[in-house]
């Protein structure tokens, strides 16, 4: 398959993920959208790496997965703490970043 097709699919997935981050109010869904963006980026890495006959992109995907796993642990911890603090996971309640 042509490399551009993969990249376009990756771009679409990335955009959908980003859109989800911005329009959804549910903290968990926002987090899932972020994971979607990670995966879009991974797809791009693998596609380009395969096209250029390199292996570094694939290695990078491994590291992105590591970061994603770490991020999942932290983000879900934050989600629990947030819920405990506010009684909801509506992200609009996170409005104190101005003090």
């Amino acid at each position: 398959m042509d490399i551009n097709a993969y990249l376009i699919v990756a771009g679409i997935l990335f955009s959908i993920g980003g859109l989800g981050v911005l329009i959804r109010k549910n903290l968990i869904v926002v987090f899932m959208s972020l994971e979607l963006m990670f995966n879009a980026a991974n797809l791009g890495f693998v596609a380009v790496s395969g096209y250029l006959n390199l292996i570094s992109g694939d290695i990078f995907v491994i590291f992105v997965m590591v970061v994603a796993a770490a991020e999942a642990a932290i983000a879900l911890g934050i989600a629990i703490a947030f819920y405990r603090e506010k009684g909801t996971i509506n992200i609009d309640k996170a409005n104190e970043l101005k003090w």
């Binding site: 796993a69 770490a70 642990a73 932290i74 911890g77 629990i80």
Partner: peptide
């Protein structure tokens, strides 16, 4: 990084 994430998650989820 993973080690730090474990500790971080633990601290965040504490009561």
């Amino acid at each position: 990084l993973l080690l730090i994430a474990i500790i971080g998650a633990f601290i965040f989820a504490r009561r």
